[in-house]
């Protein structure tokens, strides 16, 4: 058989790491969107990813709708779930404190997971990749076409979100809520509506993550929790609330996992990622790109 050089191996680890890292980054962006407006961590974020994958399987495989239509449909369905989560679990809370909201999202995550188990059962599901299964080879390293879709969608998400937050009134209003909800409501921003928007947005991003990863890794009802943990680590590593931090954090964790598994020991790959996270948090508690001033006035 052909020999594989160390350089090709390194390239392979990097490609794999970036692909996985992109998914973590998408989950982390979803966390940040809600965190920025409510200061709460949405523990149902991983469930959005899982739903994205499974709903897409339903549209694409069961109903055989082409990707062009099934993808927006899926995002629409999961976004609705996100909106319902806000209306049914978050808004009815009489005295919303961060802790209560966090607990509400934990409850919601169990509910969504249980519902998914009833609807889809416990078996994993497969989704055909968007553009074939024939891998491409670069300098001895293999790239699945779907990996390019994953990375591509992350780039699209980043561009769209940047435009949204910088160029639209609603995006700016969301950012205002992130800085100071009380002052925002004084200038006429409907904070409750903004919370709703943040849940919808983060559900949509989570769903997209689920849709693009399912052709690579399959999807089953209880996958969400692990992705949420990794996404949250990415979030903490990059700095809570920072979008560029989320992306960098996600990619770093993905790369460490992949390189650690390949070069040192696959049994301890999660340890490496979490070790790096701990070290960063010891040295700079606000995360790589988080600002210390902002983290001081945060409640959580």
């Amino acid at each position: 058989m052909e020999e594989i050089t160390l350089a090709s191996q390194l390239l392979q680890y990097t490609i794999t790491g970036i692909t996985i890292g992109s998914i973590y980054a998408m989950v982390a962006i979803g966390f940040n969107t809600i965190y920025n407006v409510t200061e709460a961590i949405n523990f149902a974020q991983g469930e959005f990813v899982m739903l994205g994958g499974l709903v897409m399987v339903f549209f694409r495989v069961t109903l055989n709708i082409p990707v062009v239509f099934s993808l927006p449909l899926t995002i629409l369905v999961v976004t609705t779930v996100g909106i319902l989560l806000d209306r049914l679990a978050i808004r009815p809370i009489r005295k919303p404190s961060v802790l209560v909201m966090v607990i509400a999202t934990i409850g919601a995550s169990f509910l969504i997971r249980g519902a998914a188990m009833f609807i889809w059962g416990k078996n994993p599901f497969d989704l055909p990749p968007f553009s074939g299964r024939n891998p491409m080879t670069f300098w001895g390293a293999v790239v699945q076409p779907q990996a390019l879709w994953v990375i591509g969608f992350l780039v699209v998400v980043v561009i769209v979100l940047t435009l949204f937050f910088d160029r639209t009134i609603m995006g700016k209003a969301l950012r205002a809520c992130a800085v100071n909800p009380n002052a925002s409501s004084l200038v006429g921003i409907n904070v409750k509506y903004m919370i709703l928007v943040s849940f919808a947005l983060s559900a949509a991003i989570g769903a997209l993550g689920g849709i693009v990863i399912t052709p690579i890794s399959l999807m089953e009802y209880d996958r969400g929790a692990m992705l949420a943990v990794k996404g949250f680590s990415a979030c903490a590593l990059g700095g809570m609330g920072s979008f560029s931090g989320a992306i960098i954090g996600g990619l770093i964790i993905g790369l460490i996992e992949s390189l650690g598994a390949g070069l040192i020991s696959s049994g301890y790959k999660d340890v490496f990622a979490l070790l790096v996270l701990l070290v960063v948090l010891f040295v700079k508690p606000s995360g790589l790109l988080g600002s210390v001033e902002v983290s001081k006035i945060r409640k959580f």
Partner: peptide, 12 residues
């Protein structure tokens, strides 16, 4: 989600 890293090492 992915075992490419482990398999790449084995390939080597």
């Amino acid at each position: 989600t992915d075992m490419t890293a482990q398999l790449t090492k084995i390939k080597g």
